[in-house]
Write a protein that binds this DNA or RNA. Structure first.
Length: 918
RNA sequence: GCGCGCUUAGCUCAGCGGUAGAGCGCUUGCUUCACACGCAAGAAGUCGUAGGUUCGAUCCCUACAGCGCGCACCA
């Protein structure tokens, strides 16, 4: 048994154990030794286990971006998954935690384009598509997926042999990957196209002028912005003296106006309908049209209509056959249609110029400050431009079944309020724009030759075919994640499903999904639909939505704010276990997490305390089973009240933790563990055990060590999912011949038989609680008279009950009070300070040092406090409403409490009486 | 505008019909042979506001306020 150092050094243990876990393949799931428990009865499962098979448990990681680096959100999300996975391993499951990364089309392409621009002063167009993609693959080789290495530092027990990349199958250098994920993406496109769910259309989409691509609605974030409302005068074509006033928040779009609309019922304008206006700055004549959409009460009741640049106007334009004039280009600069004065100008520069030009013509009626929401491109963080273009759209499959899955409870959301958000979105679901004007991604499997079209897994034969240049939205690949990562290729679906030992047969559907609520629509909802549509089954049973990690003052953590600590720095400073524990401790179900480095410090302190508790144990002799008994060998008579109480605390904690896991209340679990270990075990049990360990009764000593071993081993196992490294380290220190704690059985509640054999009765825990109260009271006396805790001092008891006949109890009190001697008296020694406790009145003899007046004051104050409570209790008992209507239990409880309080007061009065003096 | 969530000790958060809890911070004492990343003692809250239900409300209901978040074609 090696000596442990005085303080825990996480770096050593982390490096050592993670490498060993990898070397031994502890995280590698083996379908051949597992069975899928879905739909099996308990007895069927037992049969499988009898064959030496383990029940399967699986989670898929929410694949981080290939460009991503670890941030606090990942720490929270992945620690949760690791906790789930590690506990299941200990419970005897065959665990697959499947890791991977996605190709992050926009972000990755932008990053490599930037690099190429910087290093070679070239654009991607200079390089050409093939050459550019080579650069991206090279970049990926070098920098991609750093985050997976970082997850290892965090201790994540992913099955790294099964790591999947969403573009596997497309790397020309590795044409035959284990999982041809890309083939799945193509297959799904082709199938949905066959079903008529994918179509091409010229529609208004959100356009990101920085990334130069269309976006889906979900990739646009509405931001509340403080802008202006410009009121512009549009003169009548045949009478420039008269004009209509339109209100707009985007004056630059007026260059593309092709009508002005009013509500047909708006009498103010009814005589204007059908007339023409002369569009200022442009000179185009545009009609005044009537459309129900116009709200007469808003603005002036006149709406400028720009069918090429506004979704509502686009619809209106279609209804009235208006021309679409694109004045803002895909690059965010004005097109030639905007007129010579504005061509090439940035859209916001143009806004300023249009306004000033109109002002010069006295055509600006007024400008109001105006708060409105503007859609921003999520990736580039610039306003998204509504733009008409030709794109591919998906009509979502399996919507109803996917909605029902959640409303019926086949899939449970934790916390369940997200189910409402899901339902709301699914109810109003709109077609998904899946094409992106990028090169990095899965190219759309559509080829055209003149008017011919070919949609298929393979290119068409013959010459002259052109493939669609666009790629698919990254989410169009990640929505297949839970099953496409488990089947080698779509062609193998049937054969692999028929094989009962294939990954898909054993590990699908997954059990839990832990993710962020931000991607409920992006990912979770779509995965459910894809699972139903292509795998014929739901992809998971439970979805746990972790909170968003915020900084101390509640701001979302972000690179731009610079308020996000680097988790690797934190690991370096405090250790991975500390970071994990600190994060989980402050992660209540479904609430955002306020992160504070102090939480990690707390985690480190906890680990150090654990370390030292183990050190203490090791300093006391050999482990259980050798020279000392194990818990199995013991019965009630062997155990002290303290032994029994701590075993009961453990049992209660095991039960609580079981329930908290079932409800995904991770912070409750850590709180339970904290209290069990720190308060009950260290502060009380370990301290009390010194009475025995420093004594001479060898048998008692052996029993105490046995209980300690039992406690430490149980606590280490309960803690292991949260703090894998230190628990593995200490597990081996305490159990020199044991194998990894990762597969040590998860603690279960004691059976009634064991509990009764060990004499674990509620009155034991009550008694130990009373003993602790008595100790606290004694220490309080000591502190009141400034007697340092480390100075031995005599105490005396006027005992209540017969506990003082037990040598064990006396010795425990002596050591906890640091008392010597501890006497028993019928009345208080002259000149002592006293306190009433459940074990009797405790006296601190002060041999004339006692300040009679101060003591009287102290005791009187105590009486005052008790009387106050008594008054409240009596008030209730004197209320006929209470005694008449409250349950008998409550009334009895109050009566007992009143008696107790009265007795205490009497005792203190008696104490004051013995003080003497004036 | 609609919907959801939060509001408890200086800070971060538990609790949830019947004497208000933890950690950090603070005050005091302690290097006592596991741990100063520690031990012991202590101070500190009209549980957002106003109503209602109840014998009794921090807890249930209603309204309001503040903060946060989703959704929304009001230009």
């Amino acid at each position: 048994m090696d000596d442990l150092s005085k303080a825990y050094d996480p770096a050593l243990a982390e490096e050592k154990w993670y490498q060993q876990w990898l070397d031994r393949g502890d995280f590698t799931a083996d379908p051949s030794r597992a069975f899928n428990g879905r739909g099996l009865s308990d007895s069927q499962k037992s049969e499988q286990r009898a064959l030496g098979l383990k029940e399967a448990y699986s989670i898929v990681i929410p694949p981080p971006n290939v460009t991503g680096i670890l941030h606090m959100g990942h720490v929270l999300n992945n620690t949760i998954q690791d906790v789930l996975a590690r506990r299941k391993r200990m419970q005897g499951f065959e665990v697959l935690w499947l890791p991977g990364i996605d190709h992050a089309g926009i972000a990755t392409q932008a990053m490599v384009e930037k690099q190429v621009r910087k290093e070679e002063k070239k654009t991607r167009h200079d390089l050409g598509r093939d050459e550019f993609l080579k650069r991206v693959w090279a970049w990926k080789d070098k920098h991609g997926g750093i985050i997976l290495q970082q997850l290892k530092k965090l201790g994540c027990s992913c099955d790294w042999t099964r790591t999947v990349f969403t573009m596997d199958g497309l790397d020309p250098r590795h044409p035959d990957p284990r999982i041809n994920y890309s083939r799945w993406v193509t297959h799904v496109f082709v199938e949905l196209h066959k079903k008529g769910l994918i179509y091409r259309g010229r529609r208004m989409v959100n356009w990101c002028v920085v990334s130069r691509t269309a976006l889906s609605d979900e990739e646009v974030i509405m931001k509340q912005t403080q802008g202006s409302m410009w009121f512009l005068r549009y003169p009548l074509a045949d009478n420039p003296e008269k004009h209509l006033v339109v209100a707009t928040t985007r004056p630059e779009t007026m260059l593309g106006d092709t009508a002005v609309a009013v509500n047909p019922k708006d009498e103010r304008y009814s005589q204007w309908i059908g007339k023409k206006l002369k569009l200022p700055l442009v000179g185009r004549e545009i009609p005044i049209i009537a459309d129900e959409l116009v709200d007469p009460a808003f603005g002036t009741g006149c709406v400028k209509v720009t069918p090429a640049h506004d979704p509502a106007d686009f619809e209106m334009g279609n209804r009235h056959n208006l021309e679409q004039i694109q004045v803002i280009g895909f690059d965010g600069k004005m097109t030639s249609h905007a007129g010579a004065d504005y061509t090439g100008m940035d859209r916001y520069e143009c806004r300023k110029k249009v306004v000033s030009d109109l002002e010069a013509l006295h055509l600006v009626e007024k400008i109001d400050a105006y708060a409105n929401s503007v859609g921003y491109s999520e990736r580039a963080d610039v306003p998204a431009e509504p733009m008409v273009s030709e794109q591919w759209f998906l009509k979502y499959p399996a919507v109803k079944a996917s909605l029902d899955a959640v409303t019926s409870g086949q899939i449970t959301f934790w916390p369940d309020r997200w189910a409402k958000v899901y339902e709301h979105w699914m109810d109003g679901i709109k077609d998904w724009c899946i094409s992106r004007q990028l090169w990095w991604g899965h190219r759309i499997p559509v080829w055209t030759r003149n008017s011919e079209i070919h949609v298929g897994m393979e290119p068409p034969v013959g010459d002259g075919w052109l493939q669609d240049p666009d790629v698919l939205d990254t989410w169009f690949s990640s929505w297949l994640w839970p099953f496409a990562t488990m089947i080698s290729a779509p062609e193998k679906l049937d054969s692999e499903i028929r094989n009962p030992k294939s990954e898909i047969s054993v590990f699908y559907p997954t059990h839990d999904l832990a993710t962020a609520p931000e991607i409920l629509f992006f990912w979770v909802a779509r995965m459910i639909m894809a699972g139903v549509e292509f795998k014929g089954g739901l992809p998971f049973h439970n979805v746990y939505f972790n909170g968003i990690v915020r900084d101390k003052i509640g701001r979302k953590m972000s690179k731009t704010l610079g308020n996000s600590p680097d988790p690797l720095d934190l690991i370096g400073k405090y250790g991975a276990d500390a970071l994990r524990l600190g994060t989980m401790r402050c992660a209540p179900l479904g609430l955002d997490v306020r992160f504070d480095e102090q939480q990690v410090e707390l985690g480190r302190n906890f680990c150090n305390k654990l370390w030292n508790a183990a050190r203490f144990r090791l300093s006391q002799g050999a482990p259980s089973g050798q020279s000392i008994p194990t818990l199995q060998d013991l019965s009630a008579n062997d155990l002290s009240s303290d032994d029994k109480a701590i075993l009961m605390r453990l049992d209660a904690a095991v039960r609580e933790i079981e329930g908290a896991f079932a409800r995904y209340e991770f912070n409750q679990i850590t709180a339970q563990l904290y209290e069990l270990f720190w308060t009950h075990y260290c502060d009380w049990y370990l301290e009390a055990s010194k009475a025995t360990l420093y004594g001479t009764d060898e048998r008692a000593k052996a029993v105490t060590l046995c209980v300690m071993d039992h406690m430490l081993n149980a606590m280490l196992r309960l803690l292991h999912p949260f703090t894998p490294f230190i628990t593995e380290e200490l597990w081996h220190a305490i159990n020199p011949s044991a194998s990894s704690i990762q597969f040590a059985p998860w603690p279960t509640p004691l059976s009634p038989t064991d509990a009764s054999r060990l004499g674990l009765q509620p009155d034991v825990i009550r008694f130990v609680g009373q003993k602790q109260e008595a100790v606290s009271a004694g220490r309080n006396l000591r502190a009141s008279y400034n007697i340092p805790a480390n100075r031995k001092t005599p105490f005396a008891f006027t005992p209540q009950g017969d506990w003082h006949k037990s040598a064990h109890e006396v010795s425990v009190l002596k050591i906890l009070l640091n008392a010597d001697p501890l006497d028993y008296v019928t009345t208080a020694p002259k000149g002592s300070a006293s306190a009433v406790t459940p074990l009797g009145t405790i006296h601190l003899p002060l041999e004339g040092l006692v300040d009679v007046e101060a003591e009287r004051k102290r005791l009187t104050a105590q009486i005052g406090k008790i009387e106050k409570e008594l008054l409240a209790v009596n008030a209730k008992l004197n209320d006929p409403g209470f005694t008449g209507r409250a349950p008998k239990e409550a009334v009895d409880k109050h009566r007992a409490r009143a008696d107790e309080l009265k007795t205490d007061i009497e005792k203190i009065h008696a104490q004051i009486a013995t003080l003497g003096g004036s």
